[in-house]
Each structure stands twice: as structure tokens, then as C-alpha cells.
Design a protein around this nucleic acid. Structure first.
Lengths: 73, 73
DNA sequence: CCCCGATGTCAGGTCTGTTTGACATCACGG
DNA sequence: CCGTGATGTCAAACAGACCTGACATCGGGG
């Protein structure tokens, strides 16, 4: 139980928008584990900046489009 | 000796552009340590996505403007 | 000259992102 | 009915981000 990750993402939506891309395939393309994709997709924790960049790149969208950070606590 | 952080940033430039903002002040505003700012600024490691968002927000720029990720290995 | 603010370094320790591997469920097709 | 692909869960371990605290340097003022 650490801090709830305030960062949200649109990975799932982007996956489906990209022709029903599977979690396993995304994980493979990004170079991480399927587990990691699941955890991030579910918002259990936020990815590293590098991983965020790679994910956004896979879908061809800017970072701010794939991930969002709410205003203040 | 881990992996060299492929992510680069324009923090230093942004700091000076923002009226000579000091590392300590940025650290304070972002809510991290001065050490962390130094390390990130020097590219010793890439920040978390949350921290990246906060930094970009301090300077009022989009993520992709504050941080860059080079093409391929 | 001395002090102080700003930057940088080093050592150690904590926390969380990431991995590996095993396993459960559900939908689908043969 | 059985097998398989996609998703999800849990546990344990490792790695890297981040912290604390101490200290070194350099430049500018008083």
C-alpha cells in the first residue's frame, strides 16, 4: 500500500483502437512483461517514463494523449 | 551500471527560461529532493512518469516538450 | 577575507516498478 | 466436451528511482 497512482492512462482504449491488439503483443512490442502491461493498464502503478514513451510510440500518439495527470490532490 | 537512460530532458533550459529558477526551488515545487533534480537534470536516470508530469506542469509545457526519447537503439 | 547561495558528489538505505513463474477464469471453436 | 487464447491474480525476487545527510567547490557580496 503505497500511494495511489494519480496517473491514469488510455492504454486499453488505444489497444482496441489499434485493431484489437492483445496485451501480450503490446508487452512484446514495448519490451516488457505481460504482467507489467496488465498492472499499468489497471492503474496499479504508473510506468517509468521510458516505458510510457515506448507505449505512446507504439500507438503513435503523444505522451499526454496516452497518459493523464489530474490537477491537485 | 544499469542501462543508460535513453531519455533526455530540457529541465536546465526550462529553469533558466523560467527566470533563473534554482534547482532547490524546482525540487520544492515538484515535491522531490534537490538531489533528485540534479540527477535527473544530468540524465543519470529518468524520473517516474508522475514526477515528469509535475515538472512539465511547473514550467507549463507538455511532457513531450520537457522530455525526449530518441528513435531506435 | 569570509560567508553564503547554488551546484555537485558520495554512501547508505527505502520504496516501487518490473520480472519470473505458476495458476484461475472466461469465451470460443473443433 | 476439450483445448486454446486472452485476461487476471498472487508471491517472491531484483533493479532502479528516490531519500537522508554530510561534504566539496565555485562565485558573489558584505
Amino acid at each position: 500500500m503505497g500511494k495511489p497512482t494519480r496517473v491514469t492512462n488510455r492504454i486499453r482504449a488505444l489497444r482496441f483502437a489499434a485493431g484489437e491488439m492483445t496485451q501480450a503483443e503490446l508487452a512484446d512490442r514495448v519490451g516488457v512483461t505481460r504482467q507489467t502491461i496488465i498492472a499499468v493498464e489497471q492503474g496499479r502503478y504508473s510506468p517509468s517514463l521510458e516505458m510510457a514513451f515506448q507505449i505512446a510510440r507504439v500507438f503513435g500518439v503523444p505522451l499526454d494523449d496516452a497518459f493523464e495527470y489530474p490537477k491537485e490532490a
